[in-house]
Structure formats: C-alpha cells, structure tokens
C-alpha cells in the first residue's frame, strides 16, 4: 500500500504509537467503508487477518450464546415470577447485543493496529463480561434452589 492519507484523518502509521485514541464515531464509520480501512498502513500477513477474524467469530458466538441464554431463561424457568424472569432475560439479551457490537469494534481496531504496525489494543471488556456472567449465573442458582418469586 502507498502512503495515502485519508480524506478526514491524517495517516499516522509512520509513528508506531501515535494513533492511540479515535472516537467511536470514526470506528463505526470504518465498519461500513472497507476502502478507508485499506487506505491505512500496509496489508498484514493474511494469517494475522484470519486469526483476527476467528477471534471476532468467537466473540460473535459468545454473543449468540448469551442471546440464546436469554430466550432459554424466558422459556425454561416458567415457575419463576415474571419480573425476575424478565430481568434475567433482558440482562442476557442486552449482554449478547453489547458483546456483538464490541466484537466488531475490537475487530476493526485490531485490524487497523496490525495495518499500522502498532500494538494490539487492550480491553477491559472480557473481565466485565466474565463478572456479569458470574453474577447472572449466581442469581439463577439462587432462583433455581429457592424458587424465589414463584
């Protein structure tokens, strides 16, 4: 790839740690404009891109499992009171949607970091998701064991 500057943001791949933070809006624009992603830096080894794609798919599966879990709570805990059941189901559905959105945002940021030869972005999301899933699981154990809200 040549050293081409994008129309609205300067090309920063010459300085390795220069482009740390971009607004979420610019990230979201990148989702729909593959040309702009390709304008930055150099095309990395195809194996790196495929590995990034598999990580994205793994997060997408996690998101789908959470969404499926939301449906499962609503359908398979019929004795639980409606407010509690709805809360659990909505929490899981929201976590699934959030996880999917975060998957693509992380994928785009990794892809761009690889093109620029920067360090891969770090993220607090896995630990947040882990804690949230733990809390939901504990709640469900309590609901199933004590039959609360029934």
């Amino acid at each position: 790839m040549t050293d081409s500057s994008g129309p609205s943001e300067p090309s920063r791949h010459t300085e390795p740690h220069g482009g740390g933070h971009f607004s979420a809006v610019s990230d979201i624009r990148l989702w729909f404009t593959p040309e702009r992603l390709r304008e930055e830096g150099d095309t990395p080894d195809y194996r790196f891109s495929l590995a990034n794609e598999r990580t994205f798919l793994a997060w997408l599966r996690t998101a789908m499992a959470l969404v499926g879990g939301g449906f499962a709570v609503d359908q398979f805990l019929p004795e639980t009171g409606r407010p509690l059941r709805l809360t659990l189901a909505l929490m899981l559905l929201a976590a699934g949607a959030l996880c999917a959105l975060r998957a693509i945002s992380h994928w785009v940021r990794c892809e761009r970091a690889m093109r620029r030869g920067e360090d891969l972005p770090v993220s607090r999301f896995p630990i947040v998701l882990g804690l949230a899933v733990g809390v939901v699981a504990l709640l469900m154990v309590i609901v199933a064991a004590f039959g609360w809200g029934g």
Partner: peptide, 14 residues
C-alpha cells in the same frame, strides 16, 4: 481479509 461490511452484517444479525 474479511470486509468490514460483512462483519457489520454478521453483527447486525445477532
């Protein structure tokens, strides 16, 4: 590499 548009569509389905 996967195109961002395809990735966005997959996320949209979820």
């Amino acid at each position: 590499a996967l195109s961002p548009r395809a990735a966005a569509a997959a996320v949209a389905c979820t």
